[in-house]
Design a protein around this nucleic acid. Sequence first.
DNA 1: CGGCATGTTTCGCC
DNA 2: AGGCGAAACATGCC
Length: 256
Amino acid sequence: MPEGLEAEIWRSEIETVVGRTVVDAWVDERVAPPGFVGLVVGARLEGVRRAGKIVLIDTDGPTIGLHFGMTGRVLVDGVSAIDRLQYSSSRDDAQWDRLRLFTDAAGMPAVRLNDPRRLGRVTLDPDVSALGVDIFAVTPARMRRALGERRQAIKTVLLDQAVVAGLGNMCADEVLWWAGIDPRRPACALDEPDVARLATAIRRRLPVMMRRGGSHRGTLSPMVRSTCPPCERDGYPLRRDTIGGRTAVWCPHHQR
DNA sequence: CGGCATGTTTCGCC
DNA sequence: AGGCGAAACATGCC
C-alpha cells in the first residue's frame, strides 16, 4: 500500500492531532531506536511533514519518522483515512501495532502505526537529505536533471528514492503507462519530449490517484496487475516482466 | 501448498 | 567505481 501518495494522505490525517501533547507512548522495540518512548513522552506535536514515502512528525523534542515498508498504515484517532476508500481485506488487528502515541490518558491512541509484515520503521530525526525531487514537485527540468546520464532502465531509476522521492512500484508503472514509455529503456535514452511526458504524467495522474484513495487506484490496479487484461488504451495485451528485481506491468504496444 | 507482494538494505560478483 | 542480481527481512494473501 504505502508509496508517497499514502504517506501524503496520512500526513494530512495526522495534522488533526497537531497541537496535542504526547502523554504516553508504546512502541514495538524491534522497529524503533533504543529509548524511543522516553524521548517522545511529554513532547508537543508541532507539525507534520512528508519527505518522499516518509512521514515526519515535528515536536518540541525530536522529529518522529514513520517508514511504512510494504504493509504499514496509519490510524489517527482510531480511523484509517485510506481503508474507508478502498477494498482492503486487512483487518484492524492490534497485534500488528508498531507504534501508539497517546494524547489522552484514558483514550485510544491518537496515532497508530499498524504494520503486519513489520518491514516498516519508526525513527528519530531521520536524515532525508539524500532524497531526490519530491513527487509533488516534479517539473520537466528537474526530471531531466534527476535522471542524469543513468543507463539503468527508466523504471529502475524512477524507483530510486534519490532520484524521485515517493514513487513506488505501482505508481512508477502507472506514470510510464500514461507517458507511453517502455519501462526497460535506459533512462539516458529518453529525449526531451519523453521526459516532458513523464513529468506531466507524474504531475497530473498522481493527484488523481490520491483523490481516489492512493496507489491502488490507477489504470494499472492490483486486479489489472495480476490478470494482465487488454490495455485500456489500445486493446493490446498487457505484459508482465521483472525489471530491476520488481514486477513491471506495461503495454508493449503504446509504451515505446 | 507454492508463490507473490505497495519497500529497503546488504552482500557478492562482475 | 559502479551496476546488477540475489538474498534477507516477516507475514498475509491468492
